[in-house]
């Protein structure tokens, strides 16, 4: 048990340390650590957790960490995972927070952000591809694939064009799922 808690903490501490530019970029990283390496859950469970995390208030990566911690080791696991996720930022704020204002406009720091943002974008695109493949969005043309593609496009339009809140989009999608797959 202690070892599991330590592993949870160490894993999410590592992820918390590099979670630049928003939680979605951390999806491939969490997948690599929690699904492939530690085998805490399988790919489909992971997608479901992202759905739950997306429906909950709070940042998505932290939500995923809490959920995985809870599933693996109960309340203590959830606390440990959340702590792992947020402690790196706390350290950074306490250690360099005040200095950061002065170096923030620094050219080299800004240059590194230039590279970071591009990598983060690439990681999120990869996450989208990964999940599209895992969930049968790409595959031989069948009624199922077609319906999944329609749901995907509809959801994207709702988010991008009609600017609906993700929570409503997820809930609406769930209801549609019950109607057509139920």
């Amino acid at each position: 048990m202690l070892q599991l808690l330590l592993e949870l903490f160490a894993t999410f501490f590592l992820i918390g340390m590099v979670s630049f530019g928003g939680g979605y970029a951390m999806i491939p990283l969490i997948q690599e650590e929690a699904v492939n390496r530690h085998e805490w859950l399988d790919a489909q469970q992971f997608t479901d957790i992202i759905a739950i995390a997306g429906m909950s208030p709070g940042p998505i990566a932290t939500n995923i960490a809490i959920f995985i911690g809870m599933q693996e080791a109960g309340l203590l696991g959830a606390i440990v995972a959340a702590a792992g996720m947020v402690l790196p930022s706390l350290f950074i704020i306490v250690c360099v927070g005040v200095v950061f204002f002065k170096i923030y406009q620094n050219k080299w720091l800004q240059s590194s952000f230039y590279g970071l943002r591009a990598i983060i974008t690439g990681l999120i695109i990869y996450a989208a591809i990964l999940f599209a493949v895992n969930n049968g969005l790409v595959g031989e043309l069948s009624w199922f694939t077609a319906s999944q593609l329609l749901i995907f496009l509809g959801s994207l339009a709702a988010l991008l064009l009609f600017r609906k809140h993700p929570v409503y989009v997820i809930i609406a999608s769930g209801l549609i799922g019950i109607a057509i797959y139920g």
Binding site: T47, I50, I125, A132, N135, F152, L159, Y181, G182
Partner: peptide
Amino acid sequence: EAAFISIRATIVALIAYAAIKIGKTALV
């Protein structure tokens, strides 16, 4: 289960949406 079959496709859309959003600041 039925709800989640649909929600999984929506999650892909959500991630794609995040990629587009952050892509706008990264692609200079």
